[in-house]
Simulated scan of single mutants.
Amino acid sequence: MKHLKLKSLALLITVSFAISSCTSTRTALFDQYSYEKTIELKVEATKLMSKATTPYNSHKEEVETLLLNIEKLVEYEKNKPNNEITFEMWKVLNDKEKNLLSAFFKRWETKGTLSPVFLDASKKQVLDALDLLIQYESKKDNESRDALLELINLNT
């Protein structure tokens, strides 16, 4: 009887540790909507960024629409449970003071037009960040999480 109680206690302790460790490292499950919207916004951003060698005023409405759609997705991501990493990355992308998407559009607005060299470098940086976000959303694995966290940390 004593042996059975010890086994039960050991099992209870093991299950408790497993549950507590899982709750501390929770990650939001795959979300088809987030995945599709991120891809959609990447395609739209790529197309719009490519126009930055032309006057900003000619594309102001397109930029504002894209930024509004990003704000909507940020709000969606903010309210998903266990979604801190994705939410933080969207905040970085949407921050006009960082060196990613919204900051690119702010600079384009300020300068009027951007040089092809600056455009190419910025576009690569933004698209790499969006690719990491897409990978993380599709895989939800440690490798893609760590890559995304590294990028977030570099930009905070």
Rank of each mutant, 00 (worst) to 15 (best):
Q125E: 08
K72H: 13
K124T: 08
D146E: 08
E44H: 09
F17M: 08
S34M: 13
L127N: 15
K2N: 14
Q125S: 03
L149E: 13
F105G: 07
S8E: 15
E64G: 01
P116M: 11
E84V: 05
A121C: 01
T65P: 00
L29M: 08
K98P: 14
K7L: 15
T113P: 01
S122F: 04
F118G: 06
Y35E: 15
L114N: 04
K80W: 01
N82D: 14
K91F: 03
R26M: 14
K60Q: 08
N57T: 12
I134D: 08
F105Y: 08
L93F: 09
E77Q: 12
K60Y: 02
S16R: 01
W108E: 02
T65V: 07
A103I: 10
K5R: 15
K123T: 05
Q32N: 09
A129H: 05
K7W: 14
K47W: 00
C22E: 12
L67E: 02
L9H: 11
E62N: 10
E88N: 07
E88P: 02
Q135A: 02
D128N: 08
T156D: 12
K5Y: 14
S21T: 09
D31V: 02
F30Y: 14
N153W: 06
T46A: 11
S50E: 00
T54D: 08
F105K: 06
L41F: 08
T65G: 00
N99R: 12
Y76D: 12
K72P: 04
M89V: 01
T156F: 07
S138H: 09
A10G: 12
D120A: 13
E40C: 10
L48W: 01
L93S: 05
S144C: 04
A28S: 08
R107M: 10
N153R: 09
L41R: 07
K78S: 15
N69V: 04
N153V: 02
D120P: 04
L154W: 11
E88T: 06
L73T: 04
N99G: 15
F17W: 01
Q125Y: 04
E88D: 07
S138C: 04
